[in-house]
Design a protein around this nucleic acid. Structure first.
Lengths: 236, 236
DNA sequence: CGTCAGCTTGATTACTTTCAATTGTTGTGG
DNA sequence: CCACAACAATTGAAAGTAATCAAGCTGACG
């Protein structure tokens, strides 16, 4: 983690149109610019840990990260991802809880840190922002409940296929239009699908044998997206 | 489902102090009273189905119900419960989605149905209510993510123990201070824990053999709550 | 060029589901 | 109030699935 001292990303100029803050006016953005702080986080760094008191909200300007929780025996479960334009930390901040997940950087990220007070003031003064937060939470809740039913009822094979579909929908492909645009380890895929590293490896090579995907080291190349969706047995 | 025509529960007189609407003033409550409609739902009746368009918000005056989703093969997964003082349907209404779960009555319930427009107007005019909604969603999201990690990582034995703990915390005991105050079938416990009816039955009789609980027909009598919590392997 | 983390494969074990058959309980109409 | 139908609970045996344990491999990086 390193503070950005020159060429800071400016909220007033931010191009992340899908960001939750897209509803803010110029004055509000100027307020944020005057209060926020910008950092570069490297792969593997921890932005916050579960249990920590929630002091800030984090706006991802670029990069990719995972939100995960630890199970009793220390096994990690990925509950959500975040990428450019997303904010994280709002759940805890809004309900005044400690963070209940760990935020860990998967690919180097530029992150704007907005103090709790600044963000709360914005919410209080901008009705539209609070509605946006409500919608964001609703969406998160919906997908968490869907994720729950998937993990509870699907086979490992289906869950791994679905995890890949999720990654594709979220991060898309690299320039070649077929390699999933995210550096992710087998063990992280296991943490997302709720299984073990070994089983993940075996299942991925099955998929590879079936010509659904191709594995080239860490790269996952999608050869038959439809078959992948079919294998995932997705309802919506 | 039968309309209540006399002695309707009145929002202005409602004693459910923990209800989300507890922040409303007398005028707002009067507005609701003039717009809402009251029904008695019998055990087994469906209040809404997943996929239905969200027309209303439902305020539980008395009774108990489950929110569940159907998996691909038709197996039910219970995602949440609701009881007196709770409201349901807000998730879909707030994000303008169809309902994504089924609401099914477990014990006869009196339910006030508030039209979408009325509720939305309240939210727009009462900043405190919108904050309450945010907190409610945050809480739901937190517990959904916890439920997810439990289902993903715990053994069936742990999950069933945890399900019982959840039921006790949510519904408490009957007058005898030891019988769980909820009529629930083995198959519903299975739907909550994410397992099969048979395994649930076997595990419950294990617990019974270990003197953790006692089974008397449908009644579940808790004999050693601490041991149950220990068996559940609960982190928070 | 050595080391460490991540990846891979095989064999074994344990847990859970599935299928099938039986018994028990409850609510309803005659 | 009884008989029956429908649903819920129970038990056993067999089959599958995925986790665990153990060991060797590979590739990236200082």
């Amino acid at each position: 983690m390193k503070r950005i001292t020159s060429e800071n990303p400016k909220c007033t100029l931010c191009k992340n149109v899908h960001s939750i803050i897209s509803c803010l006016g110029i004055h509000e953005r100027e307020t944020i610019d005057s209060k926020k702080d910008d950092f570069i986080y490297k792969k593997g760094e921890v932005i916050f840990k579960e249990g920590n008191y929630a002091h800030n909200i984090y706006c991802i300007h670029s990069g990719k990260l995972k939100l995960s929780k630890l199970g009793k025996d220390g096994k990690e479960q990925i509950v959500r991802f975040a990428k450019a334009g997303d904010i994280i930390g709002y759940r805890s901040l809004l309900s005044n809880d400690p963070y209940h997940a760990n935020a860990i950087v998967m690919e180097d990220s530029e992150i704007c840190i907005i103090p709790k007070a600044t963000f709360q003031k914005l919410i209080e003064e901008n009705y539209k922002l609070s509605l946006n937060m409500i919608q964001l939470l609703s969406k998160d809740l919906k997908s968490a409940e869907q994720h729950l039913i998937d993990v509870a009822q699907k086979s490992v094979r289906e869950r791994i296929a679905e995890s890949l579909v999720l990654l594709i929908n979220l991060f898309g492909y690299k320039e070649d239009k077929k390699t999933i645009d995210l550096g992710i380890t087998r063990s992280e895929i296991a943490d997302l699908a709720g299984t073990t590293t070994e089983t993940t490896i075996r299942t991925l090579s099955q998929f590879s044998n079936e010509n659904i995907i191709e594995l080239e080291g860490k790269k996952i190349i999608v050869k038959n997206f439809n078959q992948l969706v079919f294998t995932a047995n997705i309802s919506d």
